[in-house]
Write a protein that binds this DNA or RNA. Sequence first.
DNA 1: CCTTAATCCTGGAAGC
DNA 2: TGCTTCCAGGATTAAG
Length: 289
Amino acid sequence: MPELPEIEHLKRSLGPILLGTRVGRVELRRAEIVRNIGLRPTGSRIKGSELLAGTTIRALARHGKELAIVADRGRALCVHLGMSGNLRWYPRGARLQGRDHVHCIWRLDSPRAGPGRLVLRDPRRFGGLWSFPSLRALRAQRWSGRGPDALAIDTRTLRRRLARTRRPVKAALLDQSILAGIGNIYADEVLFAAGIHPLTHSACLPAERVRVLAGAIRRILRSAIAAGGSTIRDFRDGDGRPGTYRRKLRVYGRCAEPCFRCMTPLRPVTVAQRTSVFCPACQPATRRR
DNA sequence: CCTTAATCCTGGAAGC
DNA sequence: TGCTTCCAGGATTAAG
């Protein structure tokens, strides 16, 4: 499930291949994955240029879990990988890994990596593509509805945004309109690191706890980026490599196993329709107001 | 306005 | 072994 660290690592792994690269023909095999139909003229067909055909890639940008590929004429293609998606580079002649669920193929000529294909594959189709005339339009129409990027979140901003909601802190961390980039894996990890119970009322967190939480978010996301992200099952970077941060996860996926800090068995709790794993000793429940 | 639930989708694991 | 059932998850939309 690609979250912020996986997408940031993807951006870094694809950057050298994609920057300055000519986009040739684009093969859209499943048109439904282009999601911003409502923002387009009704009944209009998706044009190749909307998927960057015939342009040169000039920049990559990221906000939260979303990646934008920006072309020379300014057009920005926003990619969201959902939970099972991947975006991979295949040099000419390389065989695709997985023939089914391939939704879009870009034929590229990279100044550094040579000719090849960029392939979007997403079995569960929770991901998608959104095309905008410019990065500015993408930011205004889509990313403006998201909270600040979690990678550089500061205490003051986090405290302000957590104070606005009555939900449990775990639900708030998963809400991309509050903070962009954190999903179920890293939410559990940062709450453990900060010693906060997932059900703690967001607005009731003392300022000192929020300071610790903000620090844990920045530290854990940075560390996960350096490890190439967490591969639970599907995630691969632009070169097809899995991430290694899974080995460093301290609570996610470890339900009933002993806490690394105190040996207490980790416990599950459902918050916002998701399973959370936490340590009942290191993350004590606070009395609710 | 704020919060919660249903929805989309496939593959892997568990249960019978 | 083979079938069914359940679960995993992010964002959008609808409902409460």
